[in-house]
């Protein structure tokens, strides 16, 4: 394995509304948004996305195709640079 040189730094907040909208456009229609104690929780199939201000945690069950898709849609909806 080669030395990892690309270490992306992200900034900004996640626009939850447009993120959910984009998920649906990408065919991931079975999305539920719940209010958590510290932020929002998105439930999608067997995946849970916890959003708290400046941090997001995507918890999935090993489906890499889905994870990468969620990652890319999420990155499009960060209001940083």
């Amino acid at each position: 394995h080669e030395e990892v040189v690309h270490r992306p730094l992200l900034c900004g907040k996640l626009n939850v509304g447009s993120f959910v909208e984009n998920l649906k456009q990408e065919g991931l229609a079975d999305v539920k948004v719940e209010e958590g104690s510290a932020g929002k929780i998105i439930l999608l199939q067997d995946t849970v996305i916890q959003i708290e201000g400046d941090s997001t945690h995507i918890v999935c069950q090993g489906n890499e195709t889905l994870r990468v898709k969620l990652r890319d849609i999420l990155l499009k909806n960060l209001d940083g640079i």
Binding site: L10, G12, V59, R67
Partner: peptide, 19 residues
């Protein structure tokens, strides 16, 4: 650079399972 540009870092973390 992020500090200089007065931007706020966003932490994105993944947790997945492998059998």
């Amino acid at each position: 650079a992020i500090h200089e540009l007065k931007l706020k870092k966003h932490e994105l973390r993944f947790t997945s399972t492998v059998h």
